[in-house]
Design a protein around this nucleic acid. Sequence first.
DNA 1: ACTAAGTGGAGGTGATTCCTCAACTTCTGC
DNA 2: GCAGAAGTTGAGGAATCACCTCCACTTAGT
Lengths: 221, 221
Amino acid sequence: MTETARPLRRDAQRNRERILLAAHDVFATRGFAATLDDVAHHAGVGVGTVYRRFPTKEALIEALFADRLEDLVSLAEDALALPSGWDGLTMLLRRSVGMHAVDRGLRDAALCIGIDKHHFAKVGEHLLPLVQDIFDRAHAEGSLRADVGIHDLPIIMATVTDLARHTPPGRPEIFRRFLEVVIDGLRASPENGDLGPAITQEDVEAIVHDCVPPIEPRRRT
Amino acid sequence: MTETARPLRRDAQRNRERILLAAHDVFATRGFAATLDDVAHHAGVGVGTVYRRFPTKEALIEALFADRLEDLVSLAEDALALPSGWDGLTMLLRRSVGMHAVDRGLRDAALCIGIDKHHFAKVGEHLLPLVQDIFDRAHAEGSLRADVGIHDLPIIMATVTDLARHTPPGRPEIFRRFLEVVIDGLRASPENGDLGPAITQEDVEAIVHDCVPPIEPRRRT
DNA sequence: ACTAAGTGGAGGTGATTCCTCAACTTCTGC
DNA sequence: GCAGAAGTTGAGGAATCACCTCCACTTAGT
């Protein structure tokens, strides 16, 4: 396993980059549901070339998103730098929904963090404690309703970004509007009812699991 | 066109009823995405029998849901009978989400009302004014935030019931919880920001259109 | 100019859906 | 009971879609 990979021929290297560029575009608009055939067409290369470079869709996705997810870590850090816990939380929500609306692949990747052991595990380790801090701060401040927790976040994100997916490209006001309603519903207020028992990790997995197109294709034997 | 249909043979009539019963079950769990082959299996008849009785999926859906949608009209009437406008609105939301979670076919049909000229037009004519009254009453009362309007309803319903679709059958708490957050976000409050320009009918059509499986199949020439 | 590396894209595989049709079965009126 | 109309069946045709393989061809690099 310590085998050093030989360097690619120059044309192959160029094609690899074209594929990654095309994949960025295609996954941004179609999310994980995009096909490698699609990517090949956009890159102007044959399908075979894509499969030679990235043996499975999984490999391409990892190459594409592993470090792009770091943007979310930066965002969380920025949110924690704000003086107000509430402002931090709402900034996290607004900005990440915005990013996910622009790049649906990023959205699918981000949702994977919470439900998948091996994909993007490293980013998850960085991100989750930050998000926890953001929630803790808002709770301590008394601005975030007490019965909402960190496990609600994936559900909110999945739901709002799914709406974003369906809204016409030119009208982001629509899902933003919905997000604002949700945000206002998250604010602690004496008028709020009680939400009952918290969401569990299993709930999140069960729900988010089929809000994301599968990375590995359906292979029936 | 004034041709009187001959009465069905007795066994055919029995089969027709079995098909409708099975269709009820199948559409309840799979929504409009269910196939007529599915219905046939559940009914214990051949596919051909289903296609003989209901030439298209459309015909079966109309036969199934035309009057079941009246339940929503009754619900709206009940909501209007409550003394408080806010209670009426939240009852409409909670009960219809509950109904749609239990019967995904009903959900798809209800969403069709707002976006489709010819299906379920009659029910729509009854329902829409009632819903408008419910919103007007809550607005007049000052309990519903002023920048939310009737066109937000399909979007909210589509989003929350879509979440309901993904939640495990035994855990309705999850989408109910989310709905409560949304409801609390709809309440007028001095802390709320402004939502900006209202949703238009075109927005609703564009969004809800692809939140519902198409009634008519993809027929390429 | 020779060879290993790389390429293209038609097409195999398998899943899924819609719907037809021709051989068969059952009902109903006489 | 029987003729024939009405009804049934389910295998399978046709269309679509995604994944991926294969091998005759091209090209980089020494």
